[in-house]
Amino acid sequence: MKTPRDLLLARHHPATPQLDTVRAQALAAAFPNARAPRRAAARLRDWWQELFWPARRAWLGLAAVWVVIVGSHLVRSERGRPENFTGPPTPVLRQLLREQLRLRAELLDDLAPARPTPAPAPPIDPRRGAISRPFPIA
């Protein structure tokens, strides 16, 4: 036996797809931000499944290689760093620097080409000394 409720709902049941659309539209209008994260999450999941997951061993191997490379690089740079990098120079260091500068200067002097000798001065005209002055110099 069908109740009036059953009759009514059965009569209008074909409208269910339109009602689903109406419901979705009302929710989308009221919660515009609720769908965005879901879409982003879905995109991330798709990317994960399509790009990463089928070749996951290759990606993991590549990642391990990069970890080793970066790690060894960090270790080497740590070892090569001077211990007292920022401190003021000690007197001994100053002395060494002065010595280095002196040696450098000597080295530069040795390597520098010989200076050209100036040309000999022209002979002095003997008459120049006989020029009479109009008045005597004090």
Binding site: L8, A15, L19, L27, A30
Partner: peptide
Amino acid sequence: PAAWNTLFQRFQLPLYSFVVE
């Protein structure tokens, strides 16, 4: 939003039946 979806899904057909009649 999921709660609203559940509520509306429950009432959409009875509500529509009432209104369209």
